[in-house]
Computed example of a mutant assay.
Amino acid sequence: MNLLRLDASILPTTSSSAQLADLAEAEWHAAHPTSTITRRHLATDPLPAEAWALAATAGFTPEAERTAEQADALRLAADLAAELQHADAVLLAVPLYNFGVSQHVKTWIDLIIAGAGPTNPVLAETPTALITTLGGGYGPGTPREGWDHATPYLRRILGEMWQAELTVITRELTRAASDPAMEGLRDLADQQHANAQAAARAAGKVLAGR
């Protein structure tokens, strides 16, 4: 058994998304203590920003005419796609940044599409948990309702395009504890945190097949 864990926080030592992912991972590890966990941290070890363009253009270039950089990018794309396809379960911890996914996450997704092909359901029948954390509130009736452009996009890629058996855990209001302007939301933030912790543990059990 192999769990692929992907993190994307630019603040890994204080990451809310990583803390929740740790709970899910612990449940998976408890069920599979001798199995493998493959880790990829897109923020601390980012993929080359130019790799996707090189891999994409290489696909339209005869092999004999490809540059060394294009060949390297194609190999990277193929390796990332294989890493994902070989996982028995997938755990992603992806914070919301500037109302969307970070460039690191987008590069990872684009390279996998380049390596596996745009119609390849690379996560078909693979239990997958997406943990996403948001500093503010983006739900119905909030001033920024509809401003979360990350979660719908990730649902579309993971669940619809790649056909994962997807569970989504969301924790909003992560800035409430430190932002004086959000003091009135701290009780709600604490409840959302507790709910997300319970959901992360439950998702870990689903990943583990329990």
Rank of each mutant, 00 (worst) to 15 (best):
27 E>V: 12
30 A>W: 02
31 A>Q: 06
31 A>K: 01
31 A>E: 04
33 P>V: 07
33 P>T: 06
34 T>V: 09
34 T>E: 07
34 T>I: 06
35 S>G: 12
38 T>V: 15
40 R>K: 08
40 R>G: 04
41 H>Q: 08
41 H>C: 11
43 A>C: 00
44 T>Q: 10
44 T>R: 13
45 D>W: 02
45 D>A: 15
47 L>T: 09
48 P>S: 06
49 A>F: 15
50 E>P: 03
50 E>L: 10
51 A>R: 05
52 W>G: 02
52 W>P: 01
53 A>T: 13
54 L>S: 06
55 A>I: 05
55 A>F: 02
55 A>K: 00
56 A>H: 14
60 F>S: 12
60 F>Q: 10
60 F>V: 07
61 T>V: 09
61 T>Q: 03
61 T>I: 02
63 E>I: 11
63 E>S: 13
64 A>M: 02
65 E>L: 13
65 E>M: 13
66 R>E: 10
66 R>S: 12
66 R>M: 10
67 T>A: 09
68 A>V: 12
68 A>Q: 12
68 A>S: 11
68 A>M: 05
68 A>E: 15
70 Q>S: 11
72 D>S: 15
72 D>G: 10
72 D>W: 14
72 D>K: 15
73 A>G: 02
75 R>D: 03
75 R>L: 04
76 L>T: 10
77 A>L: 07
77 A>M: 09
79 D>Q: 14
83 E>M: 13
83 E>A: 08
84 L>H: 02
85 Q>P: 01
85 Q>E: 14
85 Q>V: 09
86 H>Y: 07
88 D>Y: 01
89 A>M: 01
90 V>Y: 04
90 V>L: 11
91 L>R: 05
91 L>V: 12
93 A>H: 05
95 P>S: 07
96 L>N: 10
98 N>Q: 12
99 F>P: 00
99 F>V: 08
100 G>N: 15
101 V>L: 13
104 H>A: 14
105 V>Q: 08
105 V>G: 02
105 V>E: 07
106 K>G: 08
107 T>E: 03
108 W>F: 14
109 I>N: 02
110 D>C: 08
110 D>Q: 00
111 L>G: 00
